Measured scan of single mutants.
Amino acid sequence: DNLVIALHSYEPSHDGDLGFEKGEQLRILEQSGEWWKAQSLTTGQEGFIPFNFVAKA
């Protein structure tokens, strides 16, 4: 599955970004460039995340 774990917390800075906490698990929905579309397994919310803040779970 496309699961990743957050290496750092991220505060959203643009509409459509997904904020998350360090250690949170996310499911990657789309990989494109440096911003990936993801869904939080904690909150169920979707949005874009910086790819370098996460690692394969």
Rank of each mutant, 00 (worst) to 15 (best):
N2V: 12
N2I: 14
L3F: 11
V4L: 06
V4T: 04
I5T: 08
I5D: 01
A6P: 00
A6N: 01
A6Y: 03
A6G: 05
A6R: 01
A6L: 04
L7W: 06
L7F: 06
H8L: 12
S9P: 07
Y10S: 02
E11M: 13
E11S: 14
E11P: 07
E11L: 13
E11G: 07
S13A: 13
S13Q: 15
S13L: 15
H14P: 02
H14D: 09
D15I: 13
D15Q: 12
D15L: 12
G16D: 09
G16V: 06
G16F: 11
G16W: 15
D17H: 15
L18F: 06
L18R: 01
G19I: 04
G19C: 07
G19L: 05
E21D: 08
E21Y: 12
K22D: 03
K22E: 09
G23C: 08
E24N: 03
Q25T: 15
Q25E: 09
Q25F: 15
Q25M: 15
L26R: 00
L26Y: 02
R27P: 00
I28L: 10
L29M: 07
L29V: 08
E30Y: 12
E30W: 12
Q31R: 13
Q31A: 14
Q31E: 11
Q31H: 10
Q31F: 13
S32Y: 13
S32N: 14
G33N: 04
G33L: 03
G33H: 05
E34Y: 15
E34Q: 13
E34D: 12
E34P: 13
W35K: 12
W35H: 07
W35Y: 10
W36N: 01
W36R: 04
W36G: 02
K37H: 08
K37Q: 06
A38H: 01
A38D: 00
Q39Y: 11
Q39N: 02
S40E: 00
L41T: 07
L41D: 02
T42M: 11
T42C: 10
T43W: 02
T43S: 10
T43D: 05
T43Q: 02
T43L: 02
G44L: 09
G44S: 05
Q45W: 07
Q45H: 10
Q45K: 15
E46V: 15
E46R: 09
G47A: 02
G47V: 03
G47H: 01
F48P: 00
F48R: 10
I49H: 01
P50D: 05
F51T: 06
F51N: 10
N52F: 10
N52C: 15
N52R: 11
F53R: 05
V54L: 06
A55Q: 11
K56V: 13
A57V: 14
A57T: 12
